[in-house]
């Protein structure tokens, strides 16, 4: 495994902005020239809600997720920047119908119209994910093993979440979100939510089935592993698939 870690390097980040932006642009989004005006209006609508909330009373997303959807690691607010558009839409729908548990997000999603959800998902999918600080201590061996090799009936997480947990991209991005660099506490909470049936199990029940096989110790370890992974890589370093 060789990750080119750029966490601390604002400079390197600048270099990759173009690349990341290209990667995070979603297949469903390309506006034809004639629609450029509509696309700009969509972005304006999204920014308005992100910064000031919606007329229907949804809170400003920026308060918790940051203006560009950078998230807040300390508070375990996930970053939304660079997450696939289709994935974000699905989550907001799941909050809306109370299938995914979280009272604040449920209340917020319930106040959003589908047009607003579309606009917000498009907006956040186009932002660059935050750089991740490498942890002082390396993640536990158990977490690394689960992430890269899997164990028993649990396949390696990277099989579905892509190299380094940065997603599979392309047409599969909506199904399999990137998980690299999300707060450890957040990842842990999701895995436990699946175990307890508080989050829909995802496309074809895949993620829910996997989480049910994980022990509490495995959940903690693998969450720490992915929280420590960079969201971006500078050059594509060769990585070993399990």
């Amino acid at each position: 495994m060789k990750f080119t870690c750029l966490a601390s390097l604002g400079f390197a980040l600048l270099l990759t902005v173009g690349l990341a932006a290209a990667q995070s642009s979603q297949p469903a989004a390309p506006p034809a020239a004639a629609d450029a005006g509509a696309a700009a209006a969509q972005m304006a609508l999204a920014r308005q809600i992100v910064l000031h909330g919606s007329p229907q009373g949804a809170h400003a997303c920026a308060t918790c997720h940051g203006e560009q959807g950078q998230g807040r690691i300390k508070a375990a607010f996930p970053h939304l920047a660079g997450l696939p558009r289709g994935y974000l839409v699905r989550q907001l729908q799941h909050f809306d119908v109370l299938a995914r548990d979280n009272p604040s997000m449920q209340a917020i999603a319930h106040k959003l119209t589908s047009t607003q959800i579309d606009a917000l998902a498009t907006y956040f999918s186009r932002q660059v994910p935050p750089p991740i600080m490498p942890p002082a201590t390396p993640p536990p061996a158990l977490g690394t093993e689960l992430a890269l090799q899997g164990r028993n009936a649990v396949p390696a997480c990277v099989t579905c979440h892509g190299p380094g947990g940065r997603g599979l991209g392309g047409a599969l991005s909506a199904a399999f979100p990137p998980i690299a660099g999300q707060p450890a506490v957040y990842i842990e909470r999701q895995l436990k939510a699946w175990k307890q049936g508080q989050r829909p199990p995802g496309p074809d029940g895949l993620m829910g089935a996997i989480a049910k096989h994980l022990s509490v110790a495995e959940i903690t370890a693998v969450s720490q592993y992915f929280a420590a992974q960079p969201t971006l890589v500078v050059a594509s370093a060769p990585e070993v698939k399990p």
Partner: peptide, 19 residues
């Protein structure tokens, strides 16, 4: 919002328990 797909009822066998 359109209704979401309900998780399919599963007949998960115990075979996969990490025992």
């Amino acid at each position: 919002m359109s209704a979401i797909m309900r998780p399919r009822a599963r007949m998960r066998s115990l075979a996969m328990l990490p025992l």
